[in-house]
Design a binder for these strands. Structure first.
Lengths: 231, 231
DNA sequence: GTCGGCAGGATTGTATACGGTTGCGCATAC
DNA sequence: GTATGCGCAACCGTATACAATCCTGCCGAC
C-alpha cells in the first residue's frame, strides 16, 4: 500500500523497478531471463531511459546482472553467492529480531499476523510465488519493527536475492512449509522475548539453508569454460 | 588495483562514480554540496547520461541524495542514520574480522601493513582526508580477506557513509589517532586470533562512535526551519 | 516599506537519434 | 554434409533535443 502507488508520481523508474523486482521475487521471472530495454519500456509505456535507471537499480541490488553490450539478465546467483547471502542474513537478522521483540507494538503484531494469514491463503490458493514473497515480507517487516532503516535495507536486498537462490537451489519444489517457524517467531515477539526471537531466527535461517541444495554444482546455465572443464 | 583502472574500459560511468566517491570519502566534497549534472559532465568530458548513471549509483549507496527536479547533493546523514550505520557495522565487522583472522595469509598481512604505513604517511604529510580514506580501506581490506564478497560490499558502503558521518559529527578535527586500534587488530590477525580480532573490532567501533558528537543536534547545514528555531 | 505575482534563466526528466557491437543466419565452398 | 565467411538484424552506449519544473530577481500594488 505504501510502496506501490505512492512513489509513482515521485520517480517514474521506481514502479518499473518494483514491478520487475516483484516478478523476480514471485518467481514469475526466472534466473537468466533476458530483459531487453526496448521490450520492458514498451510494456510500461516508458522510454529506454527510465528502463535503464530501473535496471541499474536492480543491478545494484544484485537482482539482475548488466554486461556491456549484452544487456540485462535476471541474476543467477552462484553457490558461493548463495552461501554468502545466508551468512550475511545470519549476521543481521537474529540480532534484528531481538531488537524487534523489544520494541514491538500491538499494531505491529497485527500486521505480522496478517502477513502470515495472507501467506497461508496464498499457499492454499496455489500461488507459491506469492506465498514466497509474503514470507520474505515477514522478515522485512521484522526489520522494520526493529526501527533500523539501514539494516532493513540490507535485509530487503538479501531477501530478494534469497528468492533467486531459492528459485535455483530449492530441493523440493512442493515443500514450502516454513510457516511454523514464522509462527514461533511471532509468539516470541509478542512476548517481548528478545533472546528467544534471536535464537528462533538463527535456527530458522539454518533450516532454510539446509533446505537448499548447495553442493558445489554450478548454477544451471553455467559458463561454458567451467562446464567443459577446459582452461 | 582491481577496482580503479580495470573497470574504466568496462563502464564509462564507473570512473565518474569512483572519482566522486573518493572525493566524498576524502572530505574534498562536503555534505550538502550540489552536484549539477552539466558541471560534472563537463569536468569528466562525458554527457549527462553517464553522469546520471554515476549519480544514481552513488544515491543507491546513500552517498548522495536525489530529489526530483532538485538535483543531486552530497548526502547529509542525520544523527539517527549515523547511529544506524555504526550499529550495522557493529553487527557485521567483528564477526568478519574473526573470519579474516582464520584465513589471513602473509601477503594479506603485507598489504594491511602497507595500508597502515600509508595512512601514517598521509597523516604526517598533512593530508587527513587521504588518511581517513586509507583508514576506511583498512576495514574494507579485512572484509576482503574474510572472503565474503556480499558482506564486503555492505561494509564498503557503510564505511563510505561513515566518512560522511565523520565529516559532520567528528568532535575534534585534529584527533585522528585511531591507528593504535588498527595496529592491535593487525597483531591479532597475524596470530590468527579470531576471538581477539572480533573483540578488538567491536571495541574499535565503540571507540569510533564515542568520538562522534551524536547528541540529537541535526546535521550542520540543517533545514533552515530547525536551524533558526523558528516554526 | 513590504508583500505578492510574474517572467526569465537554469536545471532536471524524458524521449529520441545515431553510432557501434554482438550474435545469428544464410549462402557458398570444400 | 560440414565448415567457414559474410551480411543483416537486434540491441546497447552515448549524446543530444525538447518539455517540465523550480529557483530567483524584479516590478508593481497596497
Amino acid at each position: 500500500m505504501d510502496d506501490r502507488s505512492a512513489a509513482v508520481a515521485e520517480d517514474s523508474s521506481a514502479p518499473v523497478a518494483q514491478w520487475l523486482a516483484r516478478a523476480i521475487h514471485e518467481h514469475r521471472l526466472h534466473p537468466g531471463t533476458k530483459l531487453p530495454e526496448d521490450e520492458v519500456g514498451e510494456i510500461f509505456g516508458v522510454s529506454r531511459t527510465v528502463v535503464r535507471a530501473a535496471l541499474q537499480k536492480l543491478a545494484h541490488d544484485r537482482l539482475v546482472v548488466l554486461r556491456r553490450n549484452k544487456g540485462a539478465h535476471v541474476a543467477q546467483p552462484t553457490v558461493r553467492e548463495a552461501r554468502e547471502v545466508f551468512e550475511a542474513r545470519a549476521l543481521l537478522e537474529p540480532r534484528t529480531a531481538r531488537s524487534a521483540a523489544e520494541r514491538i507494538t500491538p499494531s505491529d503484531l497485527d500486521r505480522l499476523r496478517a502477513h502470515i494469514d495472507e501467506e497461508h491463503a496464498a499457499l492454499a490458493a496455489g500461488e507459491p510465488g506469492r506465498a514466497l514473497r509474503l514470507s520474505g515480507l515477514f522478515h522485512i517487516e521484522i526489520a522494520r519493527i526493529a526501527d533500523q532503516d539501514t539494516i532493513c535495507q540490507f535485509i530487503t536486498q538479501l531477501i530478494a536475492r534469497s528468492s533467486l537462490i531459492i528459485a535455483l537451489y530449492w530441493k523440493r519444489r512442493n515443500a514450502l512449509c516454513e510457516s511454523h517457524a514464522h509462527h514461533a517467531l511471532l509468539q516470541a515477539l509478542s512476548q517481548h522475548d528478545g533472546a528467544g526471537a534471536e535464537d528462533l531466527m538463527k535456527g530458522h535461517l539454518v533450516d532454510l539453508v539446509s533446505l537448499l541444495d548447495l553442493r558445489n554444482t554450478p548454477a544451471s546455465p553455467r559458463s561454458l569454460h567451467e562446464a567443459l572443464g577446459r582452461p
